[in-house]
């Protein structure tokens, strides 16, 4: 096991009354591809946003290997959010260059790395095109190139294959595995267990804001006495998943009343059926 690059200690994150993550602790080591697995609303994205410094912990700490808080060391991180976050009126290269410049990387250096990985992803011919007409797969690849252009020590990927066609998803997974083989560190959030098993060498199962299990697929199965990872997951997350997250804050009393005026009641037969 390599050096600990990211250290999460007793991190709790609350949004008003909602506790999205409760007392999470984990270390991310150099050369690891760590999969954050959980259902929608489990807290994966919240944890990734905490790791990338977009959110601040309500309590606890997240530090880099050198002990500095993550919010002050973002240049070591490369982030691909779920939405990819590309500017449609800019070309793919302009999108990449914009972020690189904000990372303080020269255009030459960024271009060198971008062209290398673009070849790997089959994107070389598309770098000069505006991203407006890009498919979901091309957008995801561009976002990956953008996150890699400043040579980050840790790559944070939020659902990188969500909505991709089979070929694009395979290309993305292959790149992540290649990065891992070359000693890169990747945090890979997904709700697809099979994908996590295929790509990651360590899996962290998050459910309702808690870390339920942390280990290799084999360790998780042994821990739960099951033969398949899916059974292990079900055993670890048997309680019902919550539906409220930080994105669904309760409405104010006035807003609830107003919205209620224009919301038809559920037909009685539907209620009876249930």
């Amino acid at each position: 096991m390599g050096e600990s690059l990211l250290s999460v200690r007793n991190v709790t994150k609350s949004f008003g009354e909602i506790e999205a993550l409760s007392s999470v602790s984990l270390d991310i080591y150099e050369g690891e591809i760590i999969g954050l697995v959980g259902s929608n609303g489990a807290g994966k994205t919240t944890l990734l946003r905490l790791l990338s410094g977009v959110y601040r912990p309500s309590s606890g700490s997240i530090t880099l290997g050198n002990g500095s808080p993550v919010s002050e060391s973002r240049q070591y991180l490369g982030v691909v959010p779920e939405s990819t976050g590309l500017y449609s009126r800019l070309t793919a290269w302009e999108n990449i260059r914009y972020h690189s410049r904000l990372y303080g990387v020269s255009d030459e250096e960024a271009w060198k790395r971008t062209s290398f990985f673009a070849t790997h992803l089959g994107m070389s011919d598309s770098l000069g095109r505006h991203t407006k007409g890009f498919s979901r797969g091309m957008r995801q690849k561009t976002a990956l190139l953008r996150a890699l252009a400043h040579a980050p020590r840790v790559l944070l990927l939020d659902e990188p294959t969500a909505g991709l066609d089979v070929t694009s998803a395979r290309t993305v997974r292959q790149l992540v595995q290649d990065l891992g083989n070359q000693g890169g560190t990747v945090v890979y959030s997904t709700h697809q267990l099979a994908e996590a098993e295929q790509v990651c060498n360590r899996i962290v199962i998050i459910h309702n804001g808690d870390v339920r299990a942390d280990g290799t697929p084999q360790e998780l199965m042994e821990q739960t006495g099951t033969n398949r990872l899916e059974d292990a997951y079900v055993a670890l997350t048997h309680d019902q998943a919550r539906i409220r997250t930080e994105d669904s804050k309760p409405l104010s009393k006035w807003a609830t009343w107003w919205r209620g005026l224009f919301t038809p009641a559920v037909p009685s037969e539907v209620i009876e059926d249930e």
């Binding site: 946003r49 990338s52 410094g53 977009v54 973002r74 991180l77 982030v79 691909v80 959010p81 779920e82 939405s83 990819t84 976050g85 590309l86 500017y87 972020h99 904000l102 990372y103 976002a143 953008r146 944070l156």
Partner: peptide, 9 residues
């Protein structure tokens, strides 16, 4: 969704 990527910089 471009803001999230920007806030991580």
């Amino acid at each position: 969704g471009t803001l999230e990527a920007l806030l991580g910089l």
